[in-house]
């Protein structure tokens, strides 16, 4: 039995349930719904962790080697990031949009053709382990758990994506809330979200995590490229799009300290940034090679 796919099915259901619970909490505002939603989000996190762990056991390498596996990492990081944010700031109504994103992500992973979900051995270009780590782990016979630049690069980049995903959700809520705050008639659903100023601040906090992690991801990718192929930057579409994404979020950070660019315009930039993340993650793999295919 392919255990990672069993846990995937569990997790998919758990995320749908969590989204429904946060939706119920947002609409009905009952505390017990909120508590159950948070608890369910935890269950989903544990289940997602099990996907990654079992996949690592099945494949013999770190569980982020293809699109499906990395989606699981993305869902895991976003879930963990959200729970930390909920714990620190206690704003449960935000949960609905983050969990809706998670459900969409799980659905996309579900719809991928089987060849993305199967367990495959790594091709030569993707094999890399840090010497110091294999040496250290070999004292307990655990060398096969050593990782290298590739795993580090993928992991840090996805922490970045998770931060950007949460910020994307918060920016949308910000635009909705900001518009409603200018009106005198207040929609009670929108009222239950935190004030626009808070949403703006939280969105910034999410990017304050995402941006440096993306930078570490880009740099570690460059280190790996230099080590494997002799050049740390070759302007290929994947690298270039990661830089485009980084430029957009750098613009966001500078917008927040520029008069007239805080608030709404910053939120738009955050949304554009996440659109770039989606293209970087999925678009480059599916859309861009298509252009090359027409040529040959």
């Amino acid at each position: 039995m392919i255990l990672s796919l069993v846990f995937f099915t569990f997790s998919f259901v758990f995320y749908i349930l969590t989204t429904a619970l946060y939706l119920g909490y947002w609409v009905f505002k009952k505390k017990w719904l909120g508590q159950t939603a948070t608890a369910m989000a935890f269950v989903a996190l544990v289940s997602t962790s099990m996907i990654l762990i079992s996949r690592a056991g099945e494949s013999g390498h770190a569980p982020f080697s293809n699109l499906w596996e990395s989606m699981m990492l993305f869902v895991w990081a976003t879930n963990a990031g959200y729970l930390i944010m909920e714990y620190k700031h206690k704003f449960r109504t935000i949960g609905i949009i983050v969990m809706a994103l998670e459900s969409i992500a799980m659905l996309s992973a579900l719809l991928l053709p089987y060849r993305f979900k199967s367990v495959e051995p790594l091709n030569p270009a993707l094999q890399n382990k840090w010497h110091w780590m294999t040496d250290l782990l070999s004292t307990w016979g655990l060398e096969k758990y050593a990782i290298g630049w590739l795993d580090f690069h993928v992991f840090t980049t996805f922490i970045g994506y998770a931060g950007f995903a949460i910020s994307f959700g918060l920016s949308i809520l910000y635009l909705v809330k900001e518009k409603s705050e200018t009106k005198t008639q207040r929609n009670s659903l929108v009222e239950s979200f935190p004030p626009a100023k808070t949403l703006d601040e939280l969105s910034y906090r999410a990017i304050a995590w995402g941006f440096p992690f993306l930078a570490v991801g880009i740099v570690s990718g460059a280190v790996w490229a230099n080590y494997a192929w002799g050049t740390y930057w070759s302007w290929d579409p994947k690298e270039t799009w990661s830089l485009i994404t980084w430029f957009i979020y750098a613009a966001y950070l500078h917008a927040r300290v520029t008069r007239g660019w805080r608030g709404k315009r910053a939120a738009y930039i955050s949304i554009a940034g996440f659109a770039a993340v989606i293209f970087l993650y999925w678009g480059v793999s599916f859309v861009l090679p298509g252009l090359h295919a027409y040529a040959s």
Partner: peptide, 13 residues
């Protein structure tokens, strides 16, 4: 920054 982001897209297309 925004110009660099937009312009860089051309080289990927």
């Amino acid at each position: 920054l925004i110009a660099l982001a937009v312009v860089s897209i051309f080289g990927t297309v």
